[in-house]
């Protein structure tokens, strides 16, 4: 079972099962919405405090910076809902030998691992982030055109791919390192770069996080498309780098998979 329509059908089934499982624990759902919201408020508070002392940072005004931070939050929350819960379970699957059960199934293991779990809570927070983006645009008196909006959605997908590529690479380290729980800390640490305005980065930092790991593009390009219209060069660059990062991450996962030796008896 590996043709794209079949995989899509399987994914929908998994989403439905995971959603049912999640909603069985409603109190847990609401608690996690509050926890994630607290982290978003923290980021907005940071923006608020810094802009008390300055009017502009690297050419970004306060509401523009809010569009950037909220766009980053939007992408991260969608990723957290659909792909992160499955990916972060890989170290445990490898350490305890439970990956055997995944490998026995007639479906690509990368697909099964990436989509096996779902969290509904982050979707509520993604919605809140979208409202914050809309409010900031309203403050700036900007009404995006339909093509800009559709392009924004496409760029959010490219952002999701970049998140996916980085986390897949990090969790795949588990094939070499027995206890790789620190990778989640690594993911959160590295993705702080995505909240930076691209113009603030200079030299090797800008080159590294634009071409090798396109984190400076993840939220900047979609936010810029809403705020300043689309720029073909940046857009093509972002789509190409996010696709190639995903490809490299998949190859790295396959390489790791070859090293896997079952831990079960």
């Amino acid at each position: 079972m590996s043709s794209p329509p079949q995989l899509l059908r399987l994914w929908f089934l998994q989403v439905r099962y995971a959603a049912t499982r999640e909603l069985a624990f409603r109190a847990n759902f609401f608690i996690w919405v509050i926890v994630e919201l607290a982290w978003f408020v923290l980021q907005l508070a940071f923006v608020g405090v810094v802009y008390q002392h300055v009017d502009s940072i690297a050419g970004w005004s306060r509401p523009q910076m809010i569009v950037l931070v909220a766009t980053n939050q939007l992408i991260q929350q969608i990723f957290t809902a659909f792909f992160m819960p499955g990916l972060v379970k890989l170290p445990e699957l490898v350490r305890e030998g439970k990956l055997d059960f995944v490998l026995l199934k007639p479906t690509p293991p990368q697909f099964l691992i990436s989509t096996s779990h779902l969290e509904i809570g982050p979707l509520a927070n993604a919605l809140i982030a979208a409202v914050v983006v809309a409010t900031a645009l309203h403050d700036l008196h900007i009404t995006p055109s339909l093509p800009s909006f559709l392009l924004y959605l496409l760029l959010l997908l490219a952002g999701l791919l970049t998140h996916y590529a980085l986390l897949l690479t990090l969790v795949s380290l588990t094939f070499w390192i027995i206890q790789a729980e620190s990778v989640l800390l690594g993911y959160y640490s590295i993705f702080q770069v995505a909240r930076l305005p691209r113009e603030a980065a200079k030299g090797w930092f800008r080159v590294l996080f634009t071409f090798a790991l396109p984190l400076l593009l993840v939220a900047n390009i979609p936010a810029n498309t809403l705020l300043r219209g689309w720029q073909p060069g940046s857009l093509v660059l972002f789509l190409l780098t996010s696709l190639s990062a995903t490809l490299v991450a998949s190859l790295f996962f396959q390489l790791g998979l070859r090293r896997y030796q079952s831990a079960s008896s």
Partner: peptide, 28 residues
Amino acid sequence: WNYLLRALFSAMPLLVSWVFWGAVFQDK
């Protein structure tokens, strides 16, 4: 390795702070 990775990643926020605050202090 887990420890070393953790320590390595912990330096990342400092790098991000350097870039961000560098831009804030550009005109001040």
